[in-house]
Design a protein around this nucleic acid. Structure first.
Lengths: 224, 224
DNA sequence: GCATTTTATTGACATATATCAAAAAAAATC
DNA sequence: GATTTTTTTTGATATATGTCAATAAAATGC
């Protein structure tokens, strides 16, 4: 392979078209392998045996949520849990006329209004697509059946909930003990996706501070 | 029955001894019905059938933790989960040389260092008895066996975790959106036990504020 | 019961963060 | 590409909460 002396010698045209081809293959793969993607995630908790794994394709339904649309709505019973294949969402509620974002979810996580879904009561929160989302959705009744029929699915539910509990504990500790600046730095280190893909005004309320304070914190960090 | 005119006419001796007898019977009942107490709690999640319920008395062991002793210790793997029959505990960790209390547990709840117990890794937190505690303890291995053998126990685990998740979400929202005063008032309304039975210096760090601020908040409320 | 330790309150002052207003920058829309 | 709209930044000021120090009250130990 010949070494290039200057950038001009390089012919970008064919190179770029190859890259684009690669990307479109990758997207195609993602599309076709949505169930595989979910399977990989589930296997990280429980190695499902063949029979139990077959249920994935039977019960989960592909859905799309365009940017701005709602996966859960205040006052309505959340009837589905969604596994995010692509995209991200914010969880928020309205408190004294202002919007408080309390959670984000990204690819390869289950997303639902926990209280509403698990107790089948009206939701107190909204879940909104921040990007166009592709998800695999599972009805409450279908999940209940899976829990009834397969001990493995029951276990999956338990382990996913344990994992959720651990995440919540971490977030709680951060909110309780860290200053605004420390919380932002922690987010930057532990959850860079949030800062990369979510508008800052939503991030600020997630951190429990105002947009102005977040902006100042960021400029302080830029300087130091 | 004769109506008493003055207090002096009343003979306290036999009366008091009856009361004490009653109390000791009550304690005896509690002692003997520890397993019944646990059964009632578990039944609120899943109606255990006889075989699965028999395991309660086989696997849970009565233990006492005197005030000040530890149910979990930083750096050590938490090998048991405890169901509190009587007493209460605080969860705390040490951050920059000071103690941060992040949870309390009382009668009729499961208590363990979640991350340490579920992943069998060293704990990052302490759990300390705030009162003398009587608990029913279950070893990690025994719980794992229950999960293996009985779908009902697996379900129990899931439902207890879901319940825990919902509690955590509430607490998170409170910390994120309420002022110190509002958080205190909310605690007063939703968890009066905490204020009644826990020293205020521990409550303050649970609320994410200093002892001084809590003291001021309380005096404000007393006035208004 | 008294002495000691721990816990709770109060005061003066410092600091972090919120609020309101405005400008600048970026993104969305046509 | 120009025009809205939304998001982010910056500034001045207000407020909530923290810090340090001193005292008061309560709990604990002997």
């Amino acid at each position: 392979m010949r070494v290039l002396r200057t950038l001009h010698e390089f012919d970008f045209q064919p190179f770029c078209s190859k890259i684009f081809l690669l990307i479109s293959y990758l997207n195609l793969w993602r599309q076709e392998n949505m169930y595989e993607q979910l399977r990989v995630y589930l296997d990280s908790f429980v190695k499902l045996d063949d029979e139990a794994a077959l249920e994935i394709e039977k019960k989960f339904v592909k859905k799309k949520f365009p940017k701005g649309s709602f996966l859960a709505h205040e006052g309505e019973i959340t009837r589905e849990v969604h596994f995010i294949i692509k995209g991200c969402c914010r969880f928020y509620h309205v408190k004294d006329g202002r919007t408080v974002t309390h959670w984000f979810s990204f690819e390869d996580t289950f997303t639902t209004s926990l209280r509403s879904f698990t107790t089948q009561t009206p939701s107190v929160e909204y879940i909104q697509a921040v990007e166009n989302c592709t998800v695999l959705s599972l009805q409450y009744e279908e999940l209940s059946k899976l829990y009834e029929q397969y001990q493995q699915w029951e276990r999956l539910g338990r382990l996913v909930m344990e994992d959720f509990g651990r995440q919540m504990l971490d977030r709680l500790t951060a909110l309780q003990t860290l200053t605004a600046k420390q919380r932002y730095i922690m987010l930057l280190q532990c959850e860079p996706r949030i800062i990369q893909r979510i508008p800052l005004n939503l991030v600020s309320s997630y951190l429990g501070i105002t947009g102005e304070t977040l902006s100042r914190v960021r400029s302080e960090i830029r300087i130091s």
